[in-house]
Design a protein around this nucleic acid. Sequence first.
DNA 1: AACTACATCAACCTTTTTTCTTGATCTGCT
DNA 2: AGCAGATCAAGAAAAAAGGTTGATGTAGTT
Lengths: 195, 195
Amino acid sequence: MSKDQLKTYLQNFVALSNEEMEQFLSSFEEVKVKKRQFIVQPNFVNQYRTFVVKGAFRTYAVADNGQEHTLQFAIENWWVSDFNSYIYQHPATLFVVTLEDSTILQLAFNKEQALKKANHKFETFFRIMAEKGLAFEHRRILFDLTHSAEARYENFLLNFPNFVQRVPQYALASYLGMTTEFLSRIRNKRTRKKS
Amino acid sequence: MSKDQLKTYLQNFVALSNEEMEQFLSSFEEVKVKKRQFIVQPNFVNQYRTFVVKGAFRTYAVADNGQEHTLQFAIENWWVSDFNSYIYQHPATLFVVTLEDSTILQLAFNKEQALKKANHKFETFFRIMAEKGLAFEHRRILFDLTHSAEARYENFLLNFPNFVQRVPQYALASYLGMTTEFLSRIRNKRTRKKS
DNA sequence: AACTACATCAACCTTTTTTCTTGATCTGCT
DNA sequence: AGCAGATCAAGAAAAAAGGTTGATGTAGTT
């Protein structure tokens, strides 16, 4: 069952009894989503916190001039959402779209509230998640600010080698803050070097 | 301006003064939507009643076994929505997707309520819409129940000749209640006959 | 038992769309 | 002037969407 995966994941962060685990997991709903479908769209409230069981997602914003800016990718064992929309329950400004046929586990906002109220350990889990996420973003921002396009690409390759084959290049470029064309040239240069 | 089109349309149904017309039209927002984009998705409330200025839409449901059932097509001067979701403001069960790049005029639920409260004529308009829609669906159901696949196709051709070139065949098949393959054969047979 | 109306499955083809690449030209900095 | 990177345009390559066909199956009629 696909909730086993979330269970295994959780065990890395909190120690839960069988009943606690059961309670936690039963708050999630499994959903299958086909490639290129949106699970979050601007103007609609992001109703769920979602855990990726299988598949790949991209979170991005569209600027006024039409340019897309990718904020996050997510594959197996990652979480996705328009986080601002979710925690404040305000209309989303981001798109969250599948890059492949995917299976997810979704936790509704009010169920999350209930969990946190019910048991302190659940609260702990969400706190840890948030702190790790925040720390991650800090590292990312700092790195991006201080490195060239090529270095950012190299770094991505190093840290997320398993993402590279699964995300389209235009999306990766927009994540790394450069144009598709420029990324194409960087890759081309690298592979020529290697051979 | 694209609201002129809605204006012309309205004039077929109700006689409004300039101010009334202005009030009515100003409750709509113009939106552009690219091909293959969803304006309504299951689990999200259908927030707008939408009038098609330009383009084409398909409304469909996905059954548990994954089969798609097309409920409605809409092109210029038609309305689309998940009607159940809209009027009850409950989560949608249907998808509404563009078949072409489109321009629409959207009326938010609460604005519609305000209009109806403000002026009896607006109420009349919505009543007429609903009644015509209901009558149309009655005819459709009766016809479908009593005719063969080929007859249903012929009938569609006769009643909506301008839809045929614009909707994909798999969508039309699922609207007419047959498989893509079977529709393909029907068409093939017909065109052979003609030549 | 044969016939009709239609479904299912699989393979395949065609067309359209998406994604990626490349060359040329430009810009703002150092 | 030289570098990092953008923009624009044209193509090529890859993937997806849409459509066709043959084979085979089935339920209900005649």
